[in-house]
């Protein structure tokens, strides 16, 4: 028996919107720790890892570990039927081949049940090692989204370079080139507007912009984004989900041929 009640149901709606472009089908795993998902895109270039900790739910009952295969576009169709202020409850019985999403309006005058068929998904679970990153950049998520969008109108790839000067996002295409440098800036009114660069050593990596743009669908989940870079690892683009957990996107770099 599984029953997860999330008062801030809009969080779940935003989570689905953040990942459904990248991943078609995925297993949602429920355990005492929380509600999680790990999945790669079809070409195995990017990986998404989601965690919503059990403590973040108003009610969290998960009698035994359960993995539920879902088509994310179908989940999204269901969740789009929930109001932004609705309380969302996810329910499933042991051994059942369906999951139920229950939506309650804030004043309890409307209650809806949407039952969705589950599917069997063969998915590989990858071990993600703890790593020391050469550079970690924290910046406003809207600024990062803007940079990715702007650069993708010029080129297909972005070179992200971190030096003492700051973080530089560069691209090149048929019509020309573009470089955007963000310097560390801690003197802002609100901490979420700061750009903070922790650099152990300079690093420069190249990535496909298409994927970066897809990651920025998570922007509504967090005011800030953290980008962790090391020369021998996929970049991690992390959006923290307040009080609950995170969405982390891993993107494999382009390498010299």
């Amino acid at each position: 028996m599984l029953e997860l009640r999330l008062v801030q149901g809009s969080l779940l709606k935003k989570v689905l919107e953040a990942i459904r472009e990248l991943v078609t089908d995925a297993n949602f795993d429920c355990s005492a720790t929380g509600f999680s998902l790990q999945a790669m895109d079809s070409s195995h270039v990017a990986l998404v890892a989601l965690l919503l900790r059990s403590e973040g739910f108003e009610h969290y009952r998960c009698d035994r570990n359960l993995s539920m295969g879902m088509n994310l576009n179908n989940v999204s169709k269901m969740l789009r039927c929930a109001g932004n202020n609705d309380i969302i409850t996810v329910k499933a019985d042991d051994g059942s081949d369906t999951v139920t999403f229950m939506f309650e309006s804030p004043n309890q005058d409307k209650i809806a049940d949407f039952e969705m068929k589950l599917m069997d998904i063969d998915s590989e679970h990858l071990g993600i090692p703890d790593a020391e990153y050469q550079a970690i950049v924290r910046m406003p998520s809207s600024e990062f989204a803007r940079i990715c969008k702007d650069l993708s109108s010029i080129g297909d790839t972005v070179i992200i370079s971190v030096t003492k000067e700051g973080v530089k996002f560069s691209t090149a295409g048929d019509i020309g080139t573009a470089n955007i440098v963000c310097r560390q800036n801690k003197t802002v009114d609100k901490p979420e507007e700061a750009t903070i660069i922790e650099m152990q050593e300079p690093v420069s990596l190249t990535f496909a912009l298409r994927y970066m743009n897809s990651f920025t669908k998570a922007t509504p989940l967090s005011e800030t984004v953290t980008i962790s870079l090391s020369s021998d690892l996929p970049v991690v683009v992390e959006y923290k989900i307040a009080e609950m957990g995170y969405i982390r996107f891993y993107l494999a770099p382009k390498i010299e041929e």
Binding site: H44, V45, E124, G127, Y250, E257
Partner: peptide
């Protein structure tokens, strides 16, 4: 722009 690597080049199946 270089050759695109994949996640499985870096992370192992568990």
């Amino acid at each position: 722009g270089g050759k695109q690597s994949t996640i499985t080049n870096f992370f192992r199946k568990v």
